[in-house]
Amino acid sequence: MSDRPYKVFKIKEGVVIDHIPVGKALKVVNVLGLGRKIGNSIITLGMNLESKKMGRKDVVKIEKKELSQDDLNKIVLIAPEASINIIKNEKVAEKVSIHVPAKFDNLIQCPNPKCITRNYEMRSLFITAKKEPLQVKCHYCEKVFGRDEADLL
C-alpha cells in the first residue's frame, strides 16, 4: 500500500486542506458552500489516505479558491488539526495555520430550539468556552455545546 502513488491531482492555483479526520472531507466541502456553488473551480477529494501523522486522513483540494477568516473558522469546527496550504504555480506559497477563534460570529446554528436565535431572524454568536476539547457557549441562551453538537449554519 505504502508505495502506491498519491491519487489526488496536483493543482496549479488554489488551496489544499490537509489532515482532515477520515470521513469529514465532504462536510468540509459543504460548509465552505462548495456543494451548492462551485463556479469554475475543480474540487478533488481524497478520502481515507494514509498519513504518518494521523494514520488515515482526508484531503480536499480546491482550485481557484481563497479562504476567508470565516471559512477557516468553519473548518476549525470540523477539522481542528487541518493544515492549509495555499498553492501558487503548483507550489506551496503559504502555509496557513488554523486556530480556534475567540468567537464564532453567525457561523453556528444554536442547537437549543428554545434559544432566541432559533425563534427570531437574527445573527447567532458563540463564544469559545474551552479550546480542547472544543466547547462553545451561545452568547444568547448561554448553553454550552461540544464540537459534535454544534451545527454550522
Partner: peptide, 8 residues
Amino acid sequence: PIEGSARL
C-alpha cells in the same frame, strides 16, 4: 419565555 431574549 425564550432563552436569550433579555440579552437581545
